[in-house]
């Protein structure tokens, strides 16, 4: 039962990931990424990480995919043909990616004891995770908050239009771009 569910989820993840990198339409690619991320949330739930599955749906599928669609819309050329997404080296890219996968797969299959039967520990609850985050790893937690703040400010500064005489509307998109990251850091 578990094996079948894992197989279905893995197949969905890989196929939708292929659709992300092969789709000729950028909006479709973003939506396929949403499918990949949702399937990953299913995998997290199967691996006993229920809190991370929730975070994955909220933050990735809800936040990042929305942000990406927004980015596609903002940077789309008006009129004219659909932009060409592939460059001339996709054949070489396929070879590199295949070699990478085969070498990792060989390393995994050649490692002894990876699948040694272990007594599975009790699943990690959100309470456990919160306790560990705010007690043992509180310094890293605060550091990542600072990093998110720096990224938000950096995104605003980069995307801000600072030459005079242009409409101020162009400065707006920077703020929503950073917004989904903020509540996570504040909590």
């Amino acid at each position: 039962m578990g094996a079948i569910a894992f197989g279905v989820a893995a197949a969905c993840a890989v196929l939708s990931a292929l659709a992300v990198v092969r789709s000729a339409n950028l909006v479709h690619a973003v939506l396929w990424l949403g499918v990949t991320l949702l399937t990953t949330a299913v995998l997290y739930a199967m691996l006993g990480a229920s809190f991370l599955a929730g975070v994955q749906v909220l933050l990735y599928v809800g936040g990042v995919v929305t942000l990406m669609i927004f980015g596609v819309m903002v940077t789309r050329r008006h009129g004219g043909a659909e932009p060409v997404l592939e460059n001339a080296r996709s054949g070489a890219a396929a070879i590199v990616a295949s070699v990478l996968f085969l070498s990792v797969a060989w390393a995994v299959l050649a490692t002894d004891g990876l699948d040694a039967p272990v007594t599975l520990p009790a699943p990690v609850t959100a309470a456990d995770l919160g306790r560990v985050l705010l007690r043992d790893h509180v310094l890293a937690f605060e550091t990542i908050s600072m990093l998110l703040l720096a990224a938000i400010i950096g995104a605003i500064v980069i995307a801000r239009r600072n030459d005079a005489g242009v409409s101020r509307d162009a400065t707006r998109p920077a703020a929503p771009a950073a917004a989904p990251a903020a509540p996570e850091a504040a909590e």
Binding site: A13, V14, A17, V20, V21, N87, V96, A97, L100, A105
Partner: peptide, 14 residues
């Protein structure tokens, strides 16, 4: 590894 390799392909080919 499969997902990562697909990502590498996209990174190089897009």
């Amino acid at each position: 590894a499969a997902l990562f390799s697909v990502g590498v392909y996209g990174l190089l080919a897009r």
